[in-house]
Amino acid sequence: MKIRYTGQKAEKEVFQVFNETMRQLIEQDARVVYLDADLMGSLKTQELWKRYPGNVLNTGIQEANMVGVACGLYLNGFKPYVHSFSPFASRRVFDQVFLSVGYGRKSVRVIGSDAGIMATHNGGTHMCFEDIAMMRTVPGACVVDISDPVMCGAFLKMTRDRPGLTYIRMPRRDLPDIYPPETAFAEGRGMLLREGSDITLVGCGIMVATCLQAAELLASDGIEARVIDIVTVKPLDEELLLDSAGRTGAVVTAENASVLGGLGSAVAEYLSSVHPVPVLKVGIQDSFGRVGTESFLRKAYGLTPESVALRAREALKLKQAL
């Protein structure tokens, strides 16, 4: 996979891509609706709201009702997208999402923004580390952690008619560019971003770029890391994981989410049953959120390239001891 990662901030912020894509979707398909629970201000979608009052609706601060309304809109012919901050789009409404959307087989896209540490100054009450774990348990769900703005646009478009729950977790800004503009994504297909034979680094969301940086650190010590963006934590790209585990014999996962039930768990659950190799997890270790800047929180929770590289060295030792 050819990438364009330079470490610089992306040309376009995620919220800009969100706005452009929703506008295109609405222009192309009058049945597309976007609901928000008084957080249009945070995604800067108020212009869309004014311009497309029949497609963009505000429910006020009532996330549970919003999910239910989305289900009814679907039943009567619409294609709903709903947004709130990730804790309110997942934890707060999990029963509505699980039953009304998942079990009741509606087609609804739930967008949880400011996931994990990207809630920064909003602190612990807004910092959601458990959404991946929860959403993975909904049968038939697609769970994607956005690592780059191009991916955000692609998934919004691709999932317009997808049955069941689609959960899109994303920051609002400050992602790097990784993928060239017309990159084709698919559900259940990870992206191989860097070749390497010693160890596999599997990341999602903001940790994908961190894995690429960790691979550089490791390369300066002569360790060749293979880097994968898993793209969808569910469904998991089992083929790519099995192949990578076979080639490298050790895996480190990295996520801006709780290691309890998240990407690391998903990878370990799969590999342990088909090709057991050491799987070490970088992520939130059973903690609540807290206030801080992104860089402060990365250090506080060990979401840095250095911590990924450290875990990689530990995984290599385990591999050698086998």
């Binding site: 100054h121 909003n122 602190g123 612990g124 807290r290 800047t293 402060f296 929180l297 506080a300």
Partner: peptide, 13 residues
Amino acid sequence: LNNPNSLLPGHCD
């Protein structure tokens, strides 16, 4: 208020 490591998070704590 809201300084990392501070004991005064912006939301009531």
